[in-house]
Amino acid sequence: MGLGKTHVMQAIGNQILAERPDLRVLYTSSENFMTQLINSLRQKQVFNFKDTFRKVDVLMVDDIQFIAGKKATQEEFFHTFNALYEAKKQIVLTADSFPHEIEHLEERLRSRFGMGLVADMQPPELETRIAILKNKASGEGLELADEVAFFLAEAIQTNVRELEGALIRVSAYASLTGKPITMALVRESLKDIVKGRDKPATIERIQETVANYFKITQADLRGTKKSRLYSHPRQVAMYLCKQLTRHSYPEIGHRFGGRDHTTVLYAVDKIDKKRNDDAELAETLATLSDMLRR
Rank of each mutant, 00 (worst) to 15 (best):
Leu93Ala: 00
Ile102Ala: 02
Glu103Asp: 10
Glu106Asn: 13
Glu107Asn: 14
Glu107Ser: 13
Leu109Arg: 08
Arg112Ala: 02
Phe113Asp: 05
Phe113Leu: 10
Gly114Met: 02
Gly114Asn: 02
Met115Gln: 06
Leu117Tyr: 12
Gln122Lys: 15
Gln122Ser: 04
Pro124Asn: 10
Leu126Pro: 09
Leu126Asn: 10
Glu127Met: 06
Ile132Gln: 08
Lys134Gly: 07
Asn135Val: 02
Lys136Ser: 12
Gly139Leu: 09
Gly139Lys: 08
Gly139Pro: 01
Glu140Met: 10
Glu140Trp: 05
Leu144Lys: 06
Leu144Phe: 03
Glu147Arg: 12
Glu147Pro: 05
Phe150Gln: 01
Ile156Gln: 04
Ile156Lys: 08
Ile156Ala: 10
Thr158Met: 05
Asn159Glu: 09
Glu162Pro: 06
Leu163Met: 10
Glu164Asp: 09
Gly165Asp: 03
Ala166Trp: 03
Val170Arg: 04
Ala172Trp: 08
Ala174Val: 06
Leu176Arg: 13
Gly178Thr: 11
Lys179Phe: 10
Met183Thr: 14
Leu185Ala: 11
Ser189Phe: 00
Ser189Cys: 00
Lys191Glu: 11
Lys191Phe: 05
Asp192Lys: 15
Ile193Val: 15
Ile193Glu: 13
Arg197Leu: 04
Glu204Val: 13
Arg205Glu: 07
Arg205Asn: 11
Ile206Val: 11
Ala211His: 05
Lys215Gln: 14
Ile216Glu: 04
